[in-house]
Design a binder for these strands. Structure first.
Length: 471
RNA sequence: GUCCCCAUCGUCUAGCCAGGUCCAGGACAUCGGCCUUUCACGCCGACAACACCGGUUCAAAUCCGGUUGGGGACGCCA
């Protein structure tokens, strides 16, 4: 790949959220442009007025921003470019490269069906092609494409693809309502915007020969093409709502770090030897179309979560605390002490794969606890009363309420009572957190702070006494 | 139906273009172990794949042909 002018684009249609398939297409276009110091353009393809919505446009923009895929131009809206398309139609018409077709939709459907029944390709039969018809209500404009020949193009990921023009028909460029079709608008925009590399999903390979025909009719130079393999759901069918969390924002809300998602998406279809983890800069530096695979793949959720856990562990505590705050707020914790949240983050990092996990795991620090039933029965037992009361007394006078200092307090206590840590670790854990699973009890105590830790231990002691009195 | 594309562990993939160094490497998941105050983290190990059939060749995961399987397209959707 030489260092010619590289301009790529991402052209989503705002008829749904940005899902991970689209996000990966956007990512590869972005990476390719950044790698080559080129430009990356965002274009909203809203030619389908009935299905395009403003909310979806906003979701797409928000998703792109969250992923960190910044664009150099746009967003452009196809709905605002109709004069440009109309101009091109005029040119094609007067050059004899396009024509009006008066066939009604019903007629076409019927003829298509007939062709199909006869085992023929259900394509337009060219009825109006040479009739030299004029503009009329209900008429569409079709491309007058060559009757014979072969279209060859070199796909940067799939290699040479060739299609016989007989497979193609005279596709509609402008609809009877005056609006323009996808294939036409794309070509006009790509050529007007100077797009040099069209990187898109596999599902467009069949469109490419048609679009090439339009380029040729327009007399514009062709871009390079690269078609990315599809992303499939676990059932090997194309991604859809059925597959649950597929929208980019759903991953954000799940507590996935954008870096982790970007990394995962990059590794789905692209590789750099055995390397699994990449910084964004590395991705930009190393990305190349030559290492994009050809076959469709299934998005591996477990692997994303694992990677996310790794990035959480690698992330700075203070930054993580900031990221965690909104998730804690969702769980009803607000107005928290930043230092304490930071402490909580530190203790939870190794055991959280998402920010949601982490927020849930941190809840006991910030909210009143209740004892899990089984934990209560199993560990908060009367025979521990003496030791726990002794512990409480020692904690009150411990010189340093830090992980290290507390270790000292405990080892003295164990020595004194001639017991092992195993005997009281779980009871203390339950007293402090209400659960049998938590970060280490010393770090928990440190983050909780002396006052809180003492209060919880005292509560547990009176709870045990209450049980004793009643039972 | 016609055309286009694809095919390595359960999953993502390396290797394939320039055939031997591959009885196929890494990662996730799974299973075992170590560490250990719980759960994790971390570390160590195990399981597990070249879709099939032919051809070329001294030699094929790698090249060629076919078969099967999967995906896509054939819209006044994008």
């Amino acid at each position: 790949m030489n260092t010619e002018n590289v301009v790529t684009r991402f052209p989503p249609s705002p008829t749904g959220t940005l899902h991970i398939g689209g996000a990966r297409t956007a990512l590869f276009n972005w990476l390719f442009a950044r790698h080559h110091n080129g430009r990356f353009i965002l274009r909203i393809e809203d030619t389908d007025k009935a299905r395009s919505t403003r909310e979806d446009t906003e979701i797409i923009v928000e998703s792109m921003k969250w992923l960190g895929l910044d664009w150099d131009e746009g967003p452009y809206f196809q709905s605002q470019r109709t004069e440009i398309y109309a101009e091109c139609i005029k040119k094609l018409l007067s050059a004899g490269k396009a024509y009006y077709c008066h066939c009604s939709q019903e007629e076409l459907d019927q003829r298509r069906k007939q062709a199909k029944d006869k085992g023929l390709k259900p394509k337009y039969d060219g009825k109006c092609r040479d009739l030299n018809l004029g503009k009329a209500p209900g008429a569409v404009v079709r491309l007058k494409s060559p009757l014979s020949g072969t279209i060859n193009f070199k796909d940067l990921v799939k290699g040479v693809i060739s299609v016989d023009t007989e497979e193609l028909d005279d596709l509609i460029l402008q609809r009877s309502d005056g609006s323009f079709t996808y294939n036409f608008a794309v070509v006009v925009d790509d050529s007007k915007m100077g797009i040099t590399y069209v990187i898109r999903g596999d599902d467009h390979v069949n469109n490419t020969p048609r679009q090439i025909l339009i380029y040729q009719a327009l007399g514009e130079p062709l871009p390079h093409y690269a078609h990315l393999p599809m992303i499939l759901g676990p059932d090997r069918t194309p991604l859809s709502k059925r597959h649950g969390a597929t929208s980019v924002l759903a991953y954000r809300d799940m507590g996935v770090l954008p870096h982790a998602l970007v990394n995962s998406l990059a590794r789905l279809g692209w590789s750099h030897g055995d390397q699994e983890e990449f910084s964004i800069q590395e991705l930009v530096d190393l990305f190349s179309l030559t290492h994009v695979g050809k076959s469709a793949g299934i998005f591996n959720m477990e692997k994303l979560l694992d990677l996310n856990g790794k990035y959480i562990r690698a992330e700075d505590d203070a930054r993580l605390a900031d990221l965690l705050l909104p998730f804690l707020a969702d769980l009803g914790c607000s107005g928290l002490d930043k230092e304490q949240v930071k402490g909580a983050v530190r203790t939870l990092k190794p055991r959280a794969n998402t920010l949601v996990d982490m927020a849930q795991g941190a809840l006991f620090y910030f909210k009143a606890i209740t004892y899990d039933k089984g934990a209560d029965e199993k560990f908060l037992r009367p025979e521990l009363l003496t030791i726990l009361e002794d512990l409480l007394a020692e904690l009150k006078i411990a010189p340093e309420f830090t992980q290290k200092g507390l270790e000292g307090v405990f080892s003295a206590l164990l020595e004194k009572h001639q017991i092992k840590l195993g005997k009281i670790a779980q009871p203390v854990r339950v007293a402090l957190t209400g659960k049998t699973v938590s970060p280490g009890i010393f770090e928990v105590m440190e983050v909780l702070g002396r006052e809180n830790a003492i209060k919880r231990l005292a509560n547990a002691i009176s709870h045990i006494k209450g049980k004793k009195a009643n039972g």
